[in-house]
Design a protein around this nucleic acid. Structure first.
Lengths: 241, 241
DNA sequence: CCAAAAGTGTTGCTACTACACCCATGC
DNA sequence: GCATGGGTGTAGTAGCAACACTTTTGG
């Protein structure tokens, strides 16, 4: 009865089905700390708490497409890095009804969605913190005020932060948080913000350059008060996604 | 309209909802190769193809509980390693109706479910192969005959194999494929089967012992024709899951 | 004693870190 | 020229891979 064969005898209308949603963790790095886009709820439950942008999955829409739709709703962010994160399916995670949520996470440089945020006062880019063994992340405004999180979205944010940290040094994921041309210092600041620790400058430079995934452009940083740094590009190269 | 706020205005009965299932990749290592439990379908579609064990998610059942239920249906395997793998949600992945599947993957020593397999002729433990850039894994019997895979289960198996390989050397996942006490040679054979490459014996020994996650038991392997090897136990230790 | 496998010593390589230093630019 | 940050040289260290070697057991 429990097996896949069971699916064939199953009448799809016979039993109650859970609802299926996608939630989007749209992350960035701002002021040396990881951050994510949150929306302030104006209705119960969790009224005045902050939650991830999300949507129900259409009957003729793939999960990836639903996540892109949520992302696209924010602005013209079609080229953003996007990957599936985890599926949250505890029974009482939503007090209204049974909703399973497939969480996606997306990365963009902070300036790419500044306009979208400014256009909607219910949206904010919240700083995130996550302790070593913590179940859930916490969110704060730029001046340190705590932002209460609704549903299990603190746990979703924790999963996203851990994934980001875990993939940081083998996956080129950091480049999704930078403009097309960037200095090595900017790249190092992104790494430091995500890991939460300072890194040794020369060691970091060498490690990155020896990897072979960077190309010098010959151009220089503009507007520097002192010696301008060289701008690099990211080379996707061998078998990367 | 696309946002989380939308969820509140949403009438759960107004639109068609996808069905939600879990599929289980129950993996093991047998005869030096990775393997997974498959079931032969006796109905259309994909009649006589092989698919992963699965079940629909109950309305009052968490995803993890549904996966445990599928696992438990096989035998008394309640203590098996189990983790969520990925959620597959392409629109036409099932030709009958829209079904989203949350895939789980589980690990057990092969001898632990020999009895369960023998009790059901539609179940088999299939050898798996997966090329470097392949979209899908392929399944074979012990004597090399190909087993056709139904639905997108080849892609699910590919994801499971890659996850297994990726987590192998930092996560103690290999110990879930061994009995409680095991020799270093047995551990090495598990690693070699998963990676598909031979490993240097002394290097492997040292690497494992230096990690500090093994404890010598003082006991010796029984029934060896030559010098019996020492039996080790796995120490879960610092912050492992 | 011999075959076979367990287990160890030694070497060298590679990746990475740390520290010190030199270089280039704007004021 | 001098402050500031960009960029480089030179070790030293940890982890790991390869090879040769010794040890232990059953027959």
């Amino acid at each position: 009865m429990d097996e896949r064969a069971f699916l064939d005898d199953y009448d799809p209308t016979a039993f109650k089905r859970p609802s299926l949603a996608v939630d989007l963790v749209l992350m960035s790095v701002i002021a040396g700390a990881p951050a994510a886009v949150l929306r302030r709820r104006d209705v119960h439950p969790f009224r005045d708490s902050w939650t991830l942008p999300g949507a129900f999955v259409g009957i003729d829409e793939s999960l990836d497409a639903a996540a892109r739709r949520v992302l696209g709703g924010k602005a013209h962010l079609d080229d953003a890095y996007l990957e599936q994160l985890y599926t949250f399916g505890v029974v009482d995670r939503d007090p209204r009804t049974r909703i399973i949520s497939v969480a996606y996470f997306s990365l963009l440089p902070a300036d790419r969605f500044a306009a979208a945020l400014a256009g909607d006062p219910a949206l904010t880019l919240a700083r995130l913190t996550l302790g070593e063994g913590d179940e859930a992340a916490t969110a704060h405004t730029g001046n340190g005020a705590a932002l209460p999180l609704g549903f299990d979205h603190g746990a979703i944010l924790a999963t996203a932060l851990r994934r980001l940290r875990g993939k940081l040094d083998y996956s080129g994921i950091a480049f999704a948080l930078l403009p097309e041309r960037f200095t090595l210092r900017a790249l190092q600041e992104v790494h430091e913000a995500i890991l939460g620790t300072p890194l040794n400058k020369p060691a970091f430079r060498r490690r990155m350059l020896d990897r072979g995934c960077l190309a010098a452009t010959g151009e220089r940083e503009a507007g520097a008060s002192f010696r301008p740094a060289e701008l690099y590009r990211h080379l996707p190269e061998q078998g990367e996604v």
